[in-house]
Design a protein around this nucleic acid. Sequence first.
DNA 1: CACATGACAATCT
DNA 2: CAGATTGCCATGT
Length: 113
Amino acid sequence: MKIDYLSEPNEKQALIYHVINLIPFGCVASYGQIAELAGLPGRARLVGKYLGQACASRAISWHRVVRSSGQLAFEKGSEQAKIQTSKLQEENIAVLNHRVSMSEFQWKPSFYE
DNA sequence: CACATGACAATCT
DNA sequence: CAGATTGCCATGT
């Protein structure tokens, strides 16, 4: 597996960004799922932290990351939430009541991805 | 060193 | 389903 972002200050951050960019078009993944795939089980909060640091300055598909419940992480009605909603809808992902259906849209990575 | 703060999550009430 | 509780750990004060 090719790892991007090797210039990041630490490896965890690099892996997290890498995994996020592996989420395919039309799918979403939870913070915990990203952490697990990056080899950091149980550290969903770390994903959120690094994502917040990076989304402003890097090309990361942050809009495909949602809570395990399917709820968007941003406050309902906020600008960020609106932007995320439109980005998801552009990928044919339905966003109803500030949430997406995980059973329909959650990314199920295959082993070799 | 103690304490607070996160774009979170599993579990219990 | 809504809250509250607890676990998590890097960072900043």
